[in-house]
């Protein structure tokens, strides 16, 4: 299997197609994951690859209602189809949740700059996922799991508010059993039968042992409130700012760097992000 991923930022350039014109894709498979989050497998009508990098997103169209930016949760190694994990959080996503298998939606993208995967090779990798933040990271996590030998220690921290909010339960169970991954999970509030850690995600950090901080890459995605605290923990482990990647959520409306809604200081998240190197945005007052 070819796993070549370009390290350079992939920007969606429309030379012969219109950047506002969605392409139609069919929903192949739907799986309800939690009360609010549902898994979708889609494919373009011509079965062409989405051609994305882990960390990129697409704009999903429900015609007559609007578009919503959704991060791609399948690794690029999955060919001819792609997967999204969609939270019912607004008018568009609410309509998506009413769709049945076989329905068509519009897709624009992939947009933005994803994770610089080549920079992860040969290093320790630490994933920190909070809530729905697992979905964008999953693209990268599954890729790293598939190419496990290319990395040193791989650690995954995953936190949700409650046990019932855990996404991709079967995959999470498999990761827990995977001897090659240091896996730690937590919930803010426990529930009956929950025997694992209770507390916010930063309470998992004492369990993380970083041998070679300079050679450790961190990828973080979660709710806005999480970043500041996670970054503090990571820096406290002497991991340099350049090694920390954050995937940020903003209101990406056009997806192509024009409409301005996703702007953080001078950068357009939809083009230069949503994945940022912490060193790059450290001084941006509005970033985290």
């Amino acid at each position: 299997m070819s796993n070549t991923i370009t390290a350079a930022p992939v920007r969606h350039k429309n030379t012969d197609t219109n950047m506002f014109l969605p392409r139609m894709a069919k929903i192949n498979k739907i799986e309800v994951m939690t009360e609010k989050e549902t898994y979708y497998e889609l494919e373009y009508l011509d079965k062409s690859d989405l051609g994305h990098n882990p960390g990129q997103f697409v704009e999903v169209s429900i015609f007559g209602i609007g578009e919503a930016p959704i991060s791609i949760s399948s690794p690029p190694t999955v060919k001819g189809k792609f997967e999204l994990c969609i939270r019912n959080a607004g008018m568009v996503t609410n309509k998506i949740h009413q769709l049945k298998e076989g329905a068509m939606v519009g897709i624009r993208g992939p947009f933005g700059t994803g994770f610089d995967v080549n920079n992860f090779k040969g290093k320790n990798v630490l994933f920190v996922a909070g809530g729905l933040g697992y979905a964008p990271l999953r693209s990268l996590i599954n890729y790293v799991v598939e190419t496990r030998k290319d990395y040193k220690d791989v650690t995954l921290l995953y936190g949700t508010r409650e046990p019932k909010e855990i996404l991709y339960k079967k995959e999470i169970e498999a990761l827990e059993k995977n001897k090659d991954i240091n896996f730690h999970i937590t919930v803010d509030r426990g529930a009956e039968g929950w025997t694992k850690n209770v507390g916010v995600i930063t309470t998992l950090f004492p369990k993380v042992k970083i041998d070679d901080p300079k050679n450790t890459i961190v990828a973080v995605c979660g709710p806005p409130i999480m970043y500041k605290f996670v970054v503090m923990e990571v820096l406290a482990k002497n991991i340099p700012a350049e090694n920390i990647y954050l995937s940020l959520e903003r209101r990406m409306k056009c997806g192509v760097g024009k409409c301005g809604h996703c702007q953080i200081n001078s950068v357009y998240v939809c083009c230069e992000g949503p994945v940022f190197n912490y060193a790059q945005i450290r001084d941006f007052k509005e970033a985290i």
Binding site: E249, R251, H261, Q263, E286
Partner: peptide, 12 residues
């Protein structure tokens, strides 16, 4: 509402 996301978080 310019910088508000679907979940209600408003960045400005």
């Amino acid at each position: 509402q310019f910088a508000e996301v679907a979940g209600g978080e408003n960045f400005r």
